[in-house]
Design a protein around this nucleic acid. Structure first.
Lengths: 346, 346
DNA sequence: CGTGGGTGCACCAATAGCTTC
DNA sequence: TGAAGCTATTGGTGCACCCAC
């Protein structure tokens, strides 16, 4: 029987285990375990003795081993296609707020919108027996990219992008309301006569739903629809700027544009600013109302979707999925117009 | 001996283990293990039989158990004070790029700049035996907030904010060069006569180093130093805007301002824009050159620190710390001026 | 004869190193 | 020699049980 209790402080010394702490005090592993978990089943004297000795030996609790035994884990993965998009950051705030309250631990993984990476990350999360996942699926995701995770039973919430054939809980914005509000504001309030829906990826995206009601409302109001400006487009400011600059060079823009997101509106705003100085005014409306949109120049008017609250809702839906008690709404907030300068309101 | 090989597909069916797959085929666990790890030690026939059966049974590899045995893990934590800051997103891109190449798996945790949360997250990462950590310490961090992680031996890289008494590898920007370049550009190129360093938290922050050389250069050039505008300030656009609006209401601004970061410059730019229309021009220079700064109006001139490359450097330093081979530079890139409109260059 | 305080051991799901055919 | 098996090991947890007041 080797004496394991005595550890030295040399670099590379063998890692201290719970057993070492127990041996050093002549106790059993079970007792030390109870202390580490703050169980009331152990006397105050023993508890403090254990804590002191653990500290002295430099013992570090191995959560991974505990998780293996209990089949539980407190890590929730946020699997997101683009961490550069501020929308993602705002959502993460909400998720963290709700899940942090019940002791869950949120971390963000970046798929860079690549399905292979997304698959690898999801597999890894399943393999690590994470507590849950909230994800905005990569654009080209199909049902079988989620086969693994569905079969694993890992509680999962899909955000924003719905995928055909995947029956996982879904949290999304009210696309119909967004389209309607956008059309209303541009046409009724600003009297636009030729409008477009600018940007947004063609696939697995809220674009379809938003554009549908938007376009219907436009038709009903007898305004013109600009199909060229309404072609799909990657939802980044860069892509939006390039496309808008191109279209502006070819001719005058519509007089009202609903952008797929504020992120897209930023690019359009830049293109309009650098375009011909005395061009006819173009009312620009974003979607989301990201935090920084008020800071922009011109300040961006937007159909607010409240991304932080959207994150909270995801958190709550995930809790429900995990069979935990939930307080607060599990329904995304209703979108509303936040009018600023870019549409001409201020 | 219970037959474990036959699993049904009911919800809640017992989780399939490696042993179940082995039993179903009359093989040993070890063989299945080799297959799952793509070992060449197993025949092609056996390998495919195992894969097919694993798929059929819905077996999911338990990475956590494997990690326990091998004492290894592929998760690297990015522990960041504010995921709303685009700087963090850019850094994460670089870290992920470098670490992803060697099969490491990066996730971002948000401390919201709270030391208690930071401590909890670091403990959790240590407890989960993560492969490594890259962190921008929370503002009020002290050496003993890092005692746990230091003792644990978990490879850790500190980014940007140095902490007294913590001898962990540190990656930071060249503050002296930043201060010097900033002063040079404002004073020599634009002829500013009264300048300030705007924003940045007072503690554990690059502010001190940057301001020192900046101020010295200003003095040497016999320009005036505006102490009021140079008071410390939380590094968010909101805080910057509020402070700047306040100061502008009280009197004219300096004619040249070096902002602690682009994030701060955004707020100042808004305040200047909303200020008196015929005020004397104020040259604004940010620091970092975030991706979106080119999109801003006015486009933000900046002392570029290349956050993505900074992230790559962190990744490489971490690899070195983990004893892995490293290719590429472990030194942060030299800062350089990216001149745009906000300082008056375009 | 409870009961507070603590022990012993099977178990979680894999891997490593050695043996065997 | 190539393929597979055996068994100890990883660091904890849950539970049945035990002992002494």
């Amino acid at each position: 029987m080797r004496e394991d209790g005595e550890q030295d402080d040399r670099l590379g010394a063998r890692r201290v285990r719970m057993l070492d702490v127990a041996n050093a005090l002549g106790l059993s592993r079970a007792t030390v375990s109870l202390v580490m978990r703050n169980s009331p089943l152990v006397s105050e004297a023993t508890r403090s003795a254990v804590l002191v000795e653990a500290e002295r030996l430099g013992y570090i609790y191995n959560q991974a081993a505990a998780n293996l035994r209990t089949q539980r884990n407190d890590l929730v993965g946020l699997v997101m296609p683009d961490v550069m998009n501020p929308f993602v950051a705002e959502v993460s705030l909400g998720v963290q707020e709700v899940l942090g309250e019940v002791g869950l631990f949120v971390m963000i993984a970046n798929t860079v919108d690549r399905v292979d990476l997304q698959r690898q990350i999801l597999r890894s999360l399943v393999g690590h027996r994470a507590a849950g996942v909230v994800t905005i699926p990569a654009l080209t995701s199909t049902a079988d990219h989620f086969a693994d995770i569905r079969r694993s039973g890992l509680p999962t919430v899909l955000l924003l992008r719905h995928i055909d054939g995947v029956e996982l809980p879904f949290v999304g914005t009210d696309e119909a309301a967004i389209g309607r509000l956008g059309a209303e504001h541009l046409i009724t309030v600003h009297g636009c006569r030729r409008v477009a829906y600018f940007g947004g990826d063609p696939l697995a995206s809220p674009r379809v739903g938003r554009m549908e009601t938007f376009r219907r409302a436009v038709t009903e109001a007898a305004a013109d629809w600009d199909a060229t400006w309404s072609e799909p487009l990657e939802a980044t400011p860069d892509a939006a700027y390039r496309r808008a600059a191109e279209l502006l060079a070819a001719g005058p823009p519509p007089d009202g544009v609903l952008c797929h997101s504020d992120n897209v509106a930023y690019g359009l705003a830049k293109a309009l600013r650098l375009g011909t100085p005395d061009a006819a005014p173009c009312a620009v409306l974003g979607i989301d109302d990201l935090h920084q949109s008020a800071m922009w120049n011109p300040s961006i008017s937007s159909v607010a979707t409240d991304p932080v609250e959207l994150g909270r809702v995801c958190g709550r839906v995930l809790l429900a999925e995990m069979g935990m008690p939930v307080e607060g709404s599990c329904t995304p907030p209703a979108p509303e117009i936040h009018a600023r300068a870019s549409c001409g309101c201020h």
